[in-house]
């Protein structure tokens, strides 16, 4: 249980704020261009991937990583879980946006 809480804390500490900001921007762009058939989704996903990569790099340099190591959580598990949660939130937000566009 402590390990699951640790994974969620890692996401909350480093990825949640940049993730939400990018999701809001992505949904706004997606909504604005929905009727014009511009095919904006690949651009959104590319931007998201770059932003995630940079956030993951910065998170890995932080001293807080030792808290997670002491819980037995390695960098691959931490980043992988954050990746899944982050993209799950993005696709959910985009799907919801598509209903109202």
């Amino acid at each position: 249980m402590a390990r699951i809480r640790g994974l969620l804390l890692y996401y909350r500490s480093f990825f949640l704020v940049p993730g939400i900001l990018l999701i809001l921007c992505a949904c706004w762009v997606y909504h604005s261009t929905a009727t014009q058939h511009l095919g904006i989704l690949p651009a959104i996903l590319s931007l998201k991937a770059i932003a995630f990569g940079m956030t993951a790099y910065v998170a890995h340099q932080r001293k807080e990583r030792y808290y997670f190591f002491n819980l037995g959580l390695g960098p691959y598990l931490l980043t992988g879980t954050a990746f899944v949660v982050d993209f799950l939130l993005l696709f959910t937000a985009l799907t919801l946006t598509s209903f109202y566009s």
Partner: peptide, 28 residues
């Protein structure tokens, strides 16, 4: 560190993530 119950390491700098409170940190 991945072997459960084997070892823990105290670095020489603060390492507790900002959102945690003292009790949660200890229980984790």
């Amino acid at each position: 560190y991945k072997v459960r119950g084997l070892v823990r390491y105290l670095p020489q700098f603060p390492f507790v993530p900002a959102p945690l409170n003292a009790g949660t940190f200890a229980r984790s």
